[in-house]
Design a protein around this nucleic acid. Structure first.
Length: 145
DNA sequence: GCCAACGTTGGC
DNA sequence: GCCAACGTTGGC
């Protein structure tokens, strides 16, 4: 299984809003960047991702999982743009801020740090474990629910 | 609000 | 196919 990080501006679409969608989750629509889309193409059902609040908060606030594979983005007819669906899994007991992440040497190669503009990015298993730990998640969410 | 970094567009 | 111009993102 692979790990990811999804960014959203909380005043546009926050983790709270995703939680309100329940088990059905929501389309991760609106991505108009090939790299980000290609990352979504690589996602499998059950893959986990961090939910990051950009602009406001600038912290990882929760964990999501992929609940529907890549499909046409319903917000456009342009066939280049596709997306997956994700649902909220759990809150970070203690949100992990970007400025703290930047102080951790083992996280200095994170895409979030190196290329802050990519809205859907891969996370390594090591990065996943470290951030879950920092966020007070006792153990990383299980490989399958 | 500014601006650096990045991606996309389009003229040549 | 190059690259200048432009638009957007997102940290600060």
């Amino acid at each position: 299984m692979a790990y990811w990080l999804l960014k959203s501006e909380p005043d546009v679409f926050s983790f709270e809003m995703l939680k309100a969608k329940g088990q059905k989750g929501e389309e991760w629509s609106g991505v108009r960047n090939y790299q980000a889309r290609n990352n979504m193409r690589a996602m499998k059902i059950g893959d986990k991702g961090f939910f990051y609040h950009s602009n406001e908060g600038k912290d990882i606030v929760g964990v999501v999982e992929v609940c529907k594979l890549i499909h046409q983005d319903s917000t456009t007819k342009d066939e280049r743009w596709e997306c997956v669906d994700v649902r909220a899994v759990i809150d970070m007991p203690k949100p992990v801020p970007l400025d703290v992440i930047k102080t951790v040497k083992a996280l200095s190669k994170m895409v979030l740090v190196v290329n802050s503009r990519l809205s859907v990015q891969p996370v390594t298993a090591d990065e996943w474990r470290i951030i879950c730990d920092m966020g007070g998640l006792k153990l990383p969410p299980r490989l399958s629910e």
